[in-house]
Design a protein around this nucleic acid. Sequence first.
DNA 1: ACTAACCTGTAA
DNA 2: TTACAGGTTAGT
Length: 273
Amino acid sequence: MPELPEVETIRRTLLERVLGLTITGVKVLWPPVAQNWQDKIFAEVVTGRKIESIERRGKYLLFSLDEGWSLVAHLRMTGRLNYYSCEQVPERHARLVFSLSQGELHFSDLRKFGRIQLIPTDLRSRSASLAKLGPEPLEADFTADILGERLAAKKTNLKAALLDQRVLAGLGNIYADEALFRAGLVPAREACSLSAAEIRKLHGAIREVLKAGILARGTSVRDYRDANGEEGSFQDLLQVYGRGTKPCLQCGRPLEKMRLAGRTTVFCRNCQS
DNA sequence: ACTAACCTGTAA
DNA sequence: TTACAGGTTAGT
């Protein structure tokens, strides 16, 4: 569900709510969600820890706790982090509940794909999941040249390359299609076939669409909500995602739908090449 | 580099 | 009943 703009919005809403609070208890309602560190039990380590910072890397949320511990959360398709200022009966899909020194934080996840992993902070960036991630697309060091190098090494289509978190971190099915539309590039193009000008265009489009997504507080096409339960509004600004066979907003011809990298992909054959 | 698998719910 | 849904990954 959440891609970079959604995870970033959740991060920002969480900062206002839980930064500096202490975790006073943990109820694990569905055990696989909480990943222990070696022989350390998740709930035992986490109870009593203070939340000192909340960062994001790609689609991962990184909670730094005191005493050198961290939590690394990934919401996958339908995960949510809901903050409640008062005690709250867990909803049907709640998988884990943090009691805080003020209020509660519930991790709920209809499809049970999401996870929260306990890990020592000093080992965090070298952990299996985070170590492989490509550059942060909104950081200054993510240049068009870097994108070009990464695409040149791929022997797949553009869509699959953009979804590959080792190429760059944070794009998912929505923002990949939207970036390709804005860049005027056909998703099925070979990733290593782009000209320098096309790479610059794609680089700009990726950054612009992600910034616009954050500005709109994410895309709530289905399940996504921020930590306050609020919807985003970027669904109103989507040009192609979810609009297969509808008229292109730019040229009026019907958008096409195809399957790439196992995902439904929508594009305009007229506006993209 | 692909596919199937992980899950549950909703819409066609 | 079947297909499909913001993601990742083990296995091929």
